[in-house]
Simulated scan of single mutants.
Amino acid sequence: MMTNLFSTFDPSTNLLNLPLNWTSTFMGLLLIPMMFWLTSSRIHFMWNKLNTNLHNEFKTLLGTKSFNGMTFIFISIFIMMMFNNFMGLFPYIFTSTSHLAFTFSIALPMWLSFMLFGWINNTNHMFSHLVPQGTPMALMSFMVMIETISNVIRPGTLAVRLAANMIAGHLLLTLLGNTGPSMMMNLISFLILGQMLLMILESAVAMIQAYVFSILSTLYSSEVY
């Protein structure tokens, strides 16, 4: 019996006393066989279509001043997050994106690199972001503090948003699944139907949260030049 409801998300996978929890982070690569990259197929066409659409969208958000190839950073983040979110929907697979240790370790270095680049190369531009245009003189000092705080908490909000959304759906699936043994037989079908609908919702959330993470990262980076 679980002593804590969140203990279902504790790392516990091991083989021959070797921890294998974070190997699920790389299992998404198994879903992309090399033949799909080398020969033309429907999956190859779909993959190229996805990358092209993401590239065009990120390029629009970054603007004309962005560096060549910068969109591939955010496309890679989107694909990695999406695969990790989907892998967590399979039984007995560790959901790495539901842990802040994973999401924060991606959000913090990325945000820190944007800030260092912006303050070193575009100092005046970064100072201008602290006071929005049209701010009254009496409120300028308060706006500087508010904008500074909102800028500092950005990596935390990126990490918590992804982890909280992933753990919320898994927690709901766990709660409903634990009610199965004590439920009447004529209600089991409704439970299974509810679990199936929640799985469909979680599949959509897995893609949406990866998209939100990469889009917000793109918007944050577009403010530093």
Score class of each variant (00 low, 15 high):
41 S>L: 05
142 F>E: 09
126 M>E: 08
48 N>T: 03
33 P>G: 03
105 S>C: 04
5 L>Y: 05
77 I>Y: 06
92 Y>W: 03
15 L>R: 09
213 F>W: 11
220 Y>R: 06
218 T>R: 05
69 G>I: 09
212 V>T: 09
118 G>N: 02
220 Y>E: 12
115 M>G: 02
8 T>N: 01
30 L>K: 10
26 F>V: 12
114 F>Y: 12
79 I>M: 04
95 T>M: 02
57 E>V: 12
20 L>V: 14
163 A>D: 02
190 F>K: 13
220 Y>M: 13
130 L>H: 08
8 T>R: 03
152 V>E: 09
8 T>D: 05
14 N>Q: 14
16 L>I: 10
142 F>M: 15
13 T>F: 08
42 R>M: 11
107 A>L: 04
7 S>N: 07
93 I>G: 01
86 F>A: 09
176 L>T: 05
111 W>C: 11
169 G>M: 07
15 L>Q: 07
43 I>L: 13
20 L>H: 02
127 F>A: 06
77 I>K: 09
76 S>E: 05
59 K>F: 12
22 W>I: 06
88 G>L: 00
135 T>K: 07
206 A>L: 00
181 P>H: 03
213 F>C: 01
92 Y>A: 13
202 E>M: 10
199 M>H: 10
83 F>T: 09
144 V>C: 08
49 K>C: 07
74 F>T: 13
183 M>I: 15
147 E>C: 14
73 I>L: 09
4 N>I: 02
42 R>W: 12
203 S>R: 01
94 F>V: 00
59 K>Y: 14
23 T>I: 06
219 L>D: 03
144 V>T: 13
170 H>F: 02
88 G>K: 01
33 P>L: 02
151 N>G: 14
11 P>V: 00
220 Y>I: 14
35 M>F: 12
162 L>Y: 06
114 F>W: 06
192 I>T: 12
219 L>M: 13
48 N>F: 03
133 Q>M: 08
158 L>A: 10
37 W>Y: 08
47 W>N: 11
7 S>Q: 04
145 M>F: 15
36 F>L: 10
132 P>V: 11
90 F>C: 01
196 M>P: 00
72 F>R: 13
91 P>K: 11
187 L>T: 07
158 L>S: 06
25 T>G: 04
28 G>C: 01
93 I>H: 03
50 L>P: 01
54 L>Q: 05
191 L>S: 11
200 I>M: 07
151 N>E: 09
130 L>T: 09
225 Y>T: 07
12 S>L: 03
81 M>D: 06
110 M>T: 03
181 P>Q: 06
128 S>I: 07
165 N>I: 05
216 L>S: 12
144 V>I: 15
6 F>D: 00
144 V>W: 06
134 G>M: 06
198 L>H: 01
151 N>M: 15
125 H>K: 11
62 L>H: 08
161 R>N: 13
222 S>K: 15
211 Y>F: 10
73 I>V: 12
7 S>P: 00
111 W>H: 11
132 P>C: 10
10 D>S: 04
101 A>K: 04
121 N>Y: 03
